[in-house]
């Protein structure tokens, strides 16, 4: 058992009514457990390596001269042709490259493991011994997962910014609409984009948490969540499903690129955030319905 769980149970259980601060204690312990795991650190390291790979690939490809980018958007992840102009674009390219698979996969691992992993290792019942209540535990688990979404996105962004600054020139940048904005403005937009990308993962996190309440096997929950992410993205490519696609959680993921237009094109961004909120509400409440009524046997 990890030291954190012992810390939870070691809290003096004198209060009959749970202290409101208790949630924060639980949350803090969840955060510490999540971010102390080797698995989490390895995932973050993989995510940090992606921008390094992209940066080196673009740098070595364009050493011969400018241009050389693909023709059209199918030449690689979004913004890849602009990376040579300005290192800040590596942040957007890296996020566009990791958002379809790496980031949701990492979230799937963390969210899928949240409840099922505890059940698997037999620690769930100890967590429930503490007078926190199941709803609070679920809430703390979900918040920890969302914190991981944010940290994972920021790790990609910061690693990309560092690599971009190292390999490519920085300075005023040209938006994809062709207008120029200052570097500070660009940095602000990069931060905003990272937040939007993190918010785009809220839906997957809720889905993973729900799957995690369905089973006692952590591996099964992770595999199901990651499988769902892949399946939905494949379905999103099939033109015959045109009518359903706006309701897939991944459909508007790339809309974060709209923040790089000038003026910003909000329509799809708002769709995306609304859709993520809807997924969080539906699967969050489904997870609650399942978890609070579940027989805990492990």
């Amino acid at each position: 058992m990890s030291p954190v769980e012992t810390a939870v149970t070691a809290q003096p259980p004198v209060v009959q009514k749970p202290n409101p601060l208790w949630t924060f204690g639980l949350l803090r312990s969840e955060l510490v457990t999540t971010f102390r795991r080797w698995r989490t650190l390895a995932l973050l390291a993989v995510l940090a390596a992606v921008p390094v790979l992209i940066g080196i690939a673009v740098k070595s490809q364009t050493n011969g001269g400018p241009g050389g980018g693909g023709h059209g958007a199918d030449g690689g992840p979004a913004f890849i042709t602009q990376v040579t102009n300005n290192g800040l674009f590596l942040v957007f390219t890296a996020l566009a490259a990791t958002l379809p698979f790496f980031l949701p996969m990492a979230i799937g691992v963390i969210a899928g493991d949240a409840i099922a992993g505890e059940a698997n290792s037999g620690t769930l019942r100890y967590l429930l011994v503490a007078p926190a209540g199941r709803t609070r535990l679920l809430f703390a688990k979900y918040t920890a997962t969302m914190a991981f979404c944010l940290v994972a996105t920021l790790v990609v962004a910061i690693s990309a910014l560092a690599v971009g600054a190292l390999l490519f020139p920085l300075g005023d940048l040209t938006t994809i609409s062709g207008t120029r904005i200052s570097f500070a403005d660009g940095l602000g937009r990069a931060l905003l984009i990272a937040l939007v990308v993190a918010a785009s993962l809220v839906g997957v996190a809720a889905l993973g948490l729900f799957v995690s309440t369905l089973t006692n096997s952590g591996i099964a929950a992770m595999a199901t969540t990651v499988g769902l992410v892949i399946t939905v993205q494949i379905l999103d490519q099939i033109p015959q499903l045109h009518a359903l696609q706006p309701y897939f959680f991944s459909h508007y993921w790339l809309s974060f690129a709209d923040l790089m237009r000038d003026p910003v094109y909000w329509d799809d961004l708002i769709h995306n955030l609304g859709l993520q909120a809807l997924y969080a509400a539906v699967f969050g409440s489904a997870a609650w319905a399942r978890f609070t009524a579940k027989d805990i046997t492990a």
Binding site: T62, P66, Q82, N86, P169, T174, G178, R180, P263
Partner: peptide, 15 residues
């Protein structure tokens, strides 16, 4: 519309 909407300078590295 903002005046900057209509100004365009090709960024470095643009063909």
């Amino acid at each position: 519309p903002a005046a900057s909407t209509f100004t365009f300078t090709p960024p470095k590295g643009t063909k």
